[in-house]
Design a protein around this nucleic acid. Sequence first.
RNA 1: GCCGGUGUAGCUCAGUGGUAGAGCAACGCUUUUGUAAAGCGUGGGUCGAGGGUUCAAAUCCUUUCACCGGCUCCA
Length: 577
Amino acid sequence: MSDNIDKLRHSLAHVMAAAVLEMFPKTKLGMGPAVENGFYYDLQLSKPLEEKDLPEIEKKMKELVAQSLKFEKKNINKRVAKKLFAVQPYKLELIKELPGDTVSIYSTGEFVDLCKGPHIKSTKEILPNTFKLTKVAGAYWKGSEKNKMLTRIYGLAFETEKELTDHLAILAEAEKRDHRKLGESLDLFTFSELVGPGLPLYTFKGTTVLNEIKNYSNQLQNAIGYQEVQTPSMNRAELFKVSGHYDKYKDDMFRVCSHYTKEDYYLKPMNCPQHTQIFASKQRSYKDLPIRMADFSQLHRDEKTGELSGLTRLRGFRQDDGHAFCREDQIKDEFKSVLSAVEKAMKTYGMNYKIRLSLWDPKQPEKYLGDAKVWKKSQQLLEEILVENKIEYVKAVGEAAIYGPKMDLISKDSLGREWQISTIQLDFIMPERFKLSYIDETGTQKTPVMIHRALVGSPERFFGILIEHYAGAFPVWMAPIQAVVLPIGEKHIDYARSVRNSLREINIRTEMWKDDTLGKKIRSAEMQKIPYLLIVGDREIEAKTVGVRARGKGDLGAMKTDEFIGKIKEEIANKTN
RNA sequence: GCCGGUGUAGCUCAGUGGUAGAGCAACGCUUUUGUAAAGCGUGGGUCGAGGGUUCAAAUCCUUUCACCGGCUCCA
C-alpha cells in the first residue's frame, strides 16, 4: 500500500510538470520524485516563480487529472530519446548517464518524461482534493552546490481527502508551536541584530529552563560516573591540527588573532581535544579507567547564515557533552550505561525514540580519519552491543563522525516530528593522534579508547525542541514560573504575599500579582502557561487555604496551603506533570 | 553560501508617490474586583540601514543587513 501512495505521488509530480510546461513552455525539466507526504519537481523556469503562482498551477493540474489521462510506458533507444528530449538539457544529461542502450519513458496525455516508473494507470486514480502545492524552493541540480540552482515546487499528496486535511492540521499546529514564536511571546529568548545572527540572548525565564535541562543532564551523568570539568573556548590552532578537525573543519571555526603575538587561536567547536589534554596531564593506570569527563562549555561554529534557524541551528551553543577514556574491554559497559541514562531522560521528557547506527561510507574513505580495519572493528562492536541488549536499530551508511561510528538517538516529539538528540560515538583514532596512553596490568603502555557522548545534545537546541514538544507548557519542574498567587482584592494582598513567601522559601519559583481584575490575571497567567494559579480571597484567608487552578484544567478547588506545597514539591521532585 | 519571499510602534498588522494609522501591550487616573480581557486618558515610529530617481518616497530603483521557506552543510 505504501507502494501505491508512492506511485500516486510520483505520478502527481508528472502531472505538475505537465501543467507547468503548458503554462511556461520554455521550462526545462529536472527531476521529480515522490517524497514523504508528497512530491516535488525541480524545474528551470524562464522567470522566477512565487508562492502566489501555485494556485494557478494547481488549477491546471486538476484540469489534467479530470481528463483521466493514462500513464503509458515505452522503452526506446537512447538515440531516439536524445531526439525526443532535444530541448531538455537535464534529461539529456540523465540519458547519457543511464546504463544500457534503451531508456524508459512515460507519457501522460501530451506530456512525456524520462522515467523508470512505476506509475498509476490513469489520473482517474487520483481522488479530488487529495493534493495541494505548498511551497516554492531552490534546489541544486543533482544536489551539488557546484551545479545550477533550479526551482523546486513541493506538493502534498495522500490517498484520501481526510489524510490531506489531517496533515494540514498537523502543520497548522506545528506553526502555532513554533519555538521562535513561543520563545518571543513567552519571553524565553530573543535575538539582536547588534549581537549577531545565531547568537540568542536568553532572558531570565529562558535561562531558568535551560538550567533545569542542564542540571538534569548533569544529575543523570553524575549517576553513571561522569565528572564535570571546564575547558577554555579559545585554543591554539595546533590543538585542532593534532585532532584532525583543522583539516576538515577549519573554515567552520571562528578564528581569533592575538594582536601582540599575531598567533591564531580558534574558538572551539567541540570539547573532545581539550579533554584529551586533561587525560594526558597525568600518568594513568588501567585501574584508573574509565575516566569520564562532562563539559557544558560554550561552543562556536561558523555556520553559514542561510543555515541558521531559531534555536535549532546556532553559532554559539553548549552541549551536555562528555568523554569516557576506557580500555577496550570496558566499551560495552560504557555504552550500556550511557544508553540507560539517555533512556531515562527520554522517559522524563515523554519522547519516543529510535536508535540509528551511523556507519562510514566505504565509498568515500577520504571523508574519515583512520584505516578501514579500525572502522570495521569498531562498527562491528557497536552492532554487537545493540544486538546483545536487544535494542532495535536502523543502519545509516555515511552518517558516521569523522573519527568513528556512532549510535544516534532520533526522538519523536508530540507532533511526530523526528529530531536527532543523543549520540554515543566510538573513537579509536583521536587517542592515537594525541598519543594518549595508560599502563596495563603487565606494565606495558596501551592506547585508551575514547567514547564521545551527549545525552540531549545541545541544551539550547533541545530547549527549542521542548518548547514545541510541550507547546510552551513546560512541566512544573522546568517551568520558569511554577506558581502565581492571585489575590482577589486589595485586602487579600498580605495573605497572598505570605503564601508566595512560603513557596519561595522552599525554592518554588513563585510570583504574586496584585494589579488588575482577577479575570485578567487568570487570562494572562494561562497565556504565560504557568502551571499553578493560587487564588486567595476572604474564604481562603479564613480557612488558611489556597484556591488551586491548574493550567488548562480549571479550578481544582480549595486546598490547605501545606497540602498544595506537598503536592507541587512531589511533582517537581518526580519530574511529573 | 545559493534560489525565492518578507522587513511600518514592544507585539499582530493596515497603509501603492502628496501631513505615518488600528488593535493589543505600556504608562497615568478612576475602579478593589471570586476563576480567560473593567472604564477613561496619555505617550510611543529618521517605515531594517545606506545610496539614488522625484517638487515630493514607507511606497519606485539600487546596495546592504536581518529574518522566513527550501537547497547544500551539520564534528
